[in-house]
Design a protein around this nucleic acid. Structure first.
Lengths: 138, 138
DNA sequence: TTGAATGCAAAATATTTGCATCTTC
DNA sequence: GAAGATGCAAATATTTTGCATTCAA
């Protein structure tokens, strides 16, 4: 059984070929694909795949916390199977989205605390989005 | 001439009653309304207002940097006339969105630098979104 | 008076829903 | 066998586009 399938099982999700491939693709990608991108890739393997299944699958994965959905200012949402807290950076020219892992973790706590004390909210999570120009576009 | 109208003029935007009211409403609001919310409020004053005008107006304001558009995970985008860098915090229960002003500014630079050196991007801006439970919902 | 703003209708995009069929457990 | 997943079609929600009319400068 694939790693993806194991995780699905651990989280009480049924293993179907479509679902496993969608999740596997997300786990193995650093590209934060949109639902449409996933649909296009997976439907090459399962030509009968419907977008509905992609959305339902992503919804199920999101509900279990296995993927995270986010938006960088474009129309379509992006999905990410990297569930460790991390930031994202979007290139304003080519629109690619990269992860910022680790580098920020030391400041995150401080950030959360300041947000909490200044807002009066109980802070549960934070999303950090950076915008700029990627190395390739410069 | 209203403050809002003055700013519109300064930025080379024509002053129309609809546009002025939309911008005035955004400047005077701490509620980060959606396009639909703005449409509903402004169409009470101008019953013939079309959504198109709201979107076009927001687009013009955004292009001049007078308002900022963002998304907190819901379907509709929010608009904010507070253009100074600041964070947002969304209540996961009631979905209200508050500003986090000032409190974070001291860390922002450090954050940008870490993002820049870890990603190789040239960082131009950052958006910080916090999620939690607001004082009223606790 | 001229270029931009408005309003209406229709289109485009992304996502969700209803439901019948099929599959996993 | 039952609960859940899939796929198709249609619906919804948000935003954009085309175009004729009106208005601000």
């Amino acid at each position: 059984m694939s790693k993806a399938a194991e995780i699905l099982q651990d989280y009480g999700l049924r293993i179907t070929p479509q679902r496993e491939l969608i999740f596997r693709l997300l786990m193995g990608s650093k590209e934060h694909p949109t639902a449409e991108k996933i649909y296009q890739e997976v439907s090459e393997v399962f030509p009968s795949l419907s977008r509905n299944t992609v959305y339902k699958t992503l919804e199920a994965l999101e509900a279990k916390g296995l993927v995270k959905r986010f938006n960088t200012g474009e129309s379509a949402d992006h999905y990410d199977a990297n569930t460790a807290p991390h930031g994202h950076i979007t290139c304003l020219k080519c629109r690619r989205v990269d992860d910022i892992n680790g580098a920020l973790s030391s400041i995150m706590d401080e950030l959360d605390q300041k947000a909490e004390s200044s807002s009066g909210y109980q802070v549960l999570s934070a999303d950090l989005y950076f915008y700029g120009i990627c190395p390739d576009c410069r």
